[in-house]
């Protein structure tokens, strides 16, 4: 799946990364808890979240997350958008709730992150 397909499936609008719509994504995670995101997420991932603060971008940067979907039509601040632009993360705003956005993406074949343990490489 690509960022463009993610955008279409969640009925969203691209706010950052129009030039990266063809970037592929392999997996997704829906969470408002950045602690869990840091513990579970793999690369080439989409993060679907209802939480809006700069730490969502910071967390995503550390994990090399490809795309953030802000759910429930939330609009991130300019500061958040600039941070995402600077680190090359695509940002989408979707009118869907987190649950529905995740459900639609899953239905369209985007799998979730596998549970960790024991090795970080997922061995």
């Amino acid at each position: 799946m690509t960022v463009r397909e993610v955008m279409q499936i969640v009925d969203g609008k691209i706010l950052v990364g129009e030039d990266r719509l063809d970037t592929p994504v392999d997996t997704a995670c829906g969470s408002d808890l950045m602690s869990d995101v840091l513990a579970f997420v793999k690369e080439k991932a989409v993060l679907i979240t209802g939480l809006i603060n700069p730490h969502v971008v910071r967390t995503s940067e550390m994990l090399d997350i490809t795309c953030i979907v802000f759910s429930r039509g939330k609009m991130p601040s300019e500061e958040i958008l600039e941070m995402a632009e600077e680190v090359g993360i695509a940002v989408i705003s979707s009118p869907l709730t987190t649950y529905t956005a995740c459900g639609e993406l899953y239905l369209h074949g985007l799998p979730g992150t596998k549970p960790k343990k024991p090795a970080p490489e997922g061995a």
Binding site: S35, D36, A39, L51, T59
Partner: peptide, 16 residues
């Protein structure tokens, strides 16, 4: 409130 404090930090450091 910022999305942290779930008690995953130290175990996650050790794992990585």
């Amino acid at each position: 409130t910022l999305g942290f404090g779930a008690g995953m930090g130290l175990p996650n450091m050790k794992r990585n």
